[in-house]
Computed example of a mutant assay.
Amino acid sequence: MISAAATGFFTAFSLILAIGAQNAFVLRQGLLRAHVFWLALLCALSDALLIAAGVAGFGAVVGLYPGLPRLMALGGAAFLAAYGALRFRAAWRGDYAMVLSGQSAGLWPTLAAGAAFTWLNPHVYLDTLGLIGAISTQYQPVAQKLAFAGAAMASSFTFFFGLGYGARVLAPVMRSPRAWQIFDVIVGAVMWAIAASLLSGALQENI
């Protein structure tokens, strides 16, 4: 039980830890101190649902619909390219009066963006339905499988809430428009790099 739980927690945590579009968005909202709880909850619950599906054995869905990953990659690339462009535009304009005053987009637009970063990312399906689902097969007793899945879900809650609220530590550094410009350029570059990677993979599948 303990071994299964430890494996589940650290496997999921290591997969989420990589810098990605979703993490960058949560970090940004954490710096703004806006809608952090609900955004972190959305991301963690989404991961929990996908982990449950992966452990339950639904990784075979991709085998039934082989064209699904490519469609998701194209949709995700388009979304990330658009959001990255917005971040570059914000950095170019340099108008951070609203940001420095702590203002952010409303709750529902923020959650909609968070959902898009989560569900339009093909890698999240590879990690949860594929990798975590595959690792869970080594635990045959139901109790061990539940311990593995529960710990993996707990790691998502730990990470996203830690990232969202932990971002406040950087708040003193982000008190100038220049700091936000640099941050937005980095976020935009991350978004475009991931979009390019998704697009490249989707196009290679079509060759």
Rank of each mutant, 00 (worst) to 15 (best):
A6G: 10
A6R: 02
T7P: 00
T11P: 00
F13Y: 13
F13I: 04
I16P: 05
I16S: 01
L17E: 00
I19E: 00
G30M: 09
L31R: 01
V36K: 01
F37D: 00
W38E: 14
W38Y: 11
A40K: 03
L41I: 03
L41P: 03
C43W: 01
C43I: 02
C43A: 12
A44M: 08
S46E: 02
L50G: 10
A52T: 13
A53G: 11
A53Q: 07
G54E: 04
G54W: 05
F58V: 04
G59L: 07
V61G: 02
V61P: 03
Y65C: 05
G67L: 10
R70W: 07
L71W: 15
M72T: 11
A73N: 02
L74H: 06
G76V: 08
G76W: 01
G76S: 09
A77F: 09
A78V: 12
G84L: 12
A85R: 12
R87H: 15
A90S: 15
W92R: 15
D95V: 11
D95M: 11
V99K: 08
G102P: 08
G106S: 09
G106R: 05
L107I: 09
L107H: 05
P109Y: 08
A112Y: 10
A112D: 02
G114E: 02
A115L: 12
T118D: 02
N121L: 05
N121I: 08
L126C: 03
L126S: 02
D127K: 06
T128E: 00
G133R: 04
G133C: 08
I135C: 01
T137L: 15
Q138P: 03
Q140K: 14
Q140S: 14
P141C: 09
A143K: 08
K145N: 10
L146A: 15
F148Y: 14
F148I: 08
F148T: 06
M153W: 04
A154H: 01
S156A: 15
F159K: 00
F161S: 04
F161W: 11
G162L: 09
G164R: 03
A167I: 07
V173G: 00
P177D: 12
P177N: 13
W180E: 02
Q181T: 13
I182G: 12
I182R: 14
I182C: 13
D184C: 10
V185D: 05
V187K: 00
M191I: 09
W192Q: 10
A193L: 14
A196K: 06
L199M: 13
G201L: 09
G201H: 05
L203G: 07
E205A: 14
